[in-house]
Design a binder for these strands. Structure first.
Lengths: 187, 187
DNA sequence: GGTTGCATGTAAATGGTTACATGATTGT
DNA sequence: ACAATCATGTAACCATTTACATGCAACC
């Protein structure tokens, strides 16, 4: 088992029992929203499969006027499976950045569009940085049981900050450079 | 067409006619080896599909004692399709980092293993930084036709450098922190 | 009255990886 | 002798995305 949504679920469940919905939330707002993301369409089947394999147990809690909430928790086998896969040599990161792709070919795109998407991306990074800082504060007091949480948060913050810095420092130069070449290309 | 291997191929081919093999090379060693990667099993079918759709043309060049080399070049329609997809609002980056995942759960992994994989990762980043610096020099002279190339390279370098920095600065603290908790967990 | 949040799930389609198949040449 | 580089491709499998389906409660 390399790193798929199943392993993600096992990981989240080490932090306590949760439903599929909550796992999704964790991927969006939690401390590692940055390097892993999954949709309902992959989380629910993953949990079901894990339950079949005995790595998690689902506890169905009936709710008024809502589908039953199914809270999953790790079994011994599940813990084992997770630690086993954590001990396997991690593969290289897979990054698929459409934004970088567009910037790479910036000379083929109208400059105002480059400006717009760059500004948007900077704003998005800023919002993420804020979220991560809040998250960081929430984790700083007490919870030293999982030092990796703060570690990866700090790393993500470092990357996001340097990215904002870089984009702000170099955006205008890039725009100036393509302003000429894009005009040429549109002959 | 969002960003898939087909779009990647179109992008590479703006820099001149190339074979599938060369496109793969470009993904490994070229200036954006960092944010996109694809295997032969996806590149060859992608090129074939693009050829069917008239976005590229393949020119088969017989070679002695080797399979024919098929050199593809963009058509007008292909250029058009690329610029169209470049103008679509880029999706958020998808990152899948097994390494970060392991560090997040560092307290569940034997500390020596954490040290080993972290050292390895730092070494890998270093090698990538060197490669990118070489790449950057190669691109600095003359080639200002595509300013986005240097821009994305610089961005990648900034991220890799800050990552090495962060990992080196915080690795020992992380190890010290888990040394205690891992011993506890293994009761 | 419309949107957001809670809460689960399925089915089809897409897209990509992995493993296989072939084979000469060059370097260690 | 063995590995790596060049060179293409297919087929099976796997994982994930997307779209669909349902429906109440709370807020604006």
């Amino acid at each position: 088992m390399p790193m798929d949504v199943k392993t993600l679920c096992l990981g989240v469940l080490t932090r306590g029992p949760h439903s599929g919905y909550e796992i999704k939330k964790f991927c969006e707002e939690g401390p590692f929203a940055h390097f892993f993301d999954a949709g309902f369409g992959s989380i629910y089947p993953a949990l079901r499969k894990l339950a079949q394999d005995g790595l998690v147990v689902g506890d169905s809690r009936p709710q008024a006027s809502r589908p039953d909430k199914v809270v999953y928790r790790l079994t011994r086998e599940g813990e084992r499976a997770l630690t086993d896969s954590l001990c396997e040599p991690p593969a290289l990161d897979r990054i698929r950045s459409e934004f970088s792709f567009v910037l790479f070919f910036a000379h083929l795109v109208p400059p105002p569009l480059i400006r717009r998407i760059t500004d948007r991306r900077i704003a998005w990074y800023r919002s993420q940085i804020e979220r991560m800082e809040r998250c960081s504060q929430a984790h700083s007091d007490g919870n030293s049981r999982a030092p990796g949480v703060a570690f990866t948060l700090g790393w993500g913050l470092a990357i996001y900050r340097v990215s904002v810095q870089y984009l702000e420092d170099n955006r205008d130069d890039l725009l100036a450079a393509i302003e000429g070449s894009f005009a040429d290309a549109a002959d």
